[in-house]
Amino acid sequence: MTLASHPSSTLASLTGSPVRWLPGLLLIGAMAAAALWLAGQPFFARHGLGMLTLAIVLGLLLGNTVYPRLDQACGPGVGLAKQQLLRAGIVLYGLRLTFQDIAVMGWGGVAVDALVLASTFGLASWLGQRVLGLDRRTTLLVGAGSSICGAAAVLATAPVVKGRAQDVAVAVATVVVFGTLGMFLYPALYHWNASWDWIDMNAQQYGLYVGATVHEVAQVVAAGAAIGPEAAATAVIAKMTRVMMLAPFLLVLSFFLARARHGAAAGQKDAGGSRAITIPWFALGFVAMAGVNSLDMLPDAVVRAGVRLDDLLLAMAMAALGLTTHVRAVRAAGLRPLLLAAALFAWLLGAGLLLSRYLPQWP
């Protein structure tokens, strides 16, 4: 069992001269500062557009216009922000939470996460192969990304399903597209619901809904923060609980795929051998930081400084994510994987809403 989220990609991003990171970090740092300033303006504040949402909007605008000409110089720093700075930001997010907060979510929140994961992945397996005619590798990778934690789940699942580079690229493109769409759609749905009074839902229930259904951790943070700190805290708790289900998910998937391979080989031993299970280190770091905060060991000034640093890191990560989300990635994904991801997104919106809203109320 391996602790690093992706050892090869992490090593590649950290080798070489640190000077090469500087142009990209300066660019996304300036974008994060601009997002912070815009978030304080009355217009954006009234419409619930926070710093993280504005950071990715700026990233999307630049990423599909001028950034391609800057990619060679800024790419290393942008990549560092998408990987290491994002994960560091999630770890520091634990300073906002305590284990007492996790206890508030109760068995209902854990059950919602588990049912969303199982139902979404099961639907993907059936719909992708039986209805849309996709190959098994692409189907399972899109399903894993949609049901657990986006691109990180795709990359962690790829060795288990023996995914090729093109399979991984297609799956990542689809979950990034619909995860980014969800970041903007979920807060809009919350405000529309509040205006029209369709479903009785408070900020904490909305946070559980977001954490149990939105793809990427960073997207969960942004969608939750767009409503308020209570929604963001609940969303991150629910999401990290879902992320921690990645290891048992991979173990179960490995078991079933091994049985299928053994059956296809008429009982012969699988030549692929056993594969290591990868656990995202930032999930464990988040839990550890929340544990330290639960013990009330750190001075208030240190906690406040950590939260401010966390805001900066997450805004930089969101800007980097926007810079590298391009329209051409949608075209490259093809129609059938996009249809599968769209169907799973619709399932998460609908079934996830019902589960997160009503399951925790059951006795």
Rank of each mutant, 00 (worst) to 15 (best):
A320Y: 04
M316H: 14
A332N: 13
V302Q: 06
M297G: 03
T241E: 07
A264L: 09
N293Y: 09
A265D: 12
A319E: 08
R328L: 00
M240V: 09
L295D: 07
P360M: 03
M318Q: 12
D311M: 01
A235Y: 05
M245Y: 03
M244C: 05
T278W: 05
A343V: 07
G350L: 08
L284M: 12
V302H: 06
A265W: 03
S274N: 11
L295C: 12
A317F: 00
Q361L: 07
A320L: 04
V236P: 03
A301L: 05
P248C: 04
L246V: 08
L338E: 12
R328C: 00
Q268F: 00
A333V: 10
F286T: 03
A238L: 03
V252R: 07
F255M: 05
G272T: 05
W347T: 12
A315S: 13
T234W: 10
R308C: 01
V307T: 10
G322I: 08
A320P: 09
K269D: 12
D310Q: 15
R259W: 12
I277L: 15
L338S: 14
G263C: 01
L313Q: 05
G306E: 06
M289D: 06
L340A: 04
M244T: 10
L295G: 08
L298N: 14
I237R: 07
F345H: 11
G263H: 13
G267K: 10
A343C: 14
L312I: 14
L298R: 11
A264M: 09
S254V: 00
P363D: 04
A260H: 14
V330H: 11
A329M: 14
R308I: 09
F282A: 00
V303Q: 13
L253R: 06
R304F: 07
Q361N: 03
R259V: 08
R261N: 13
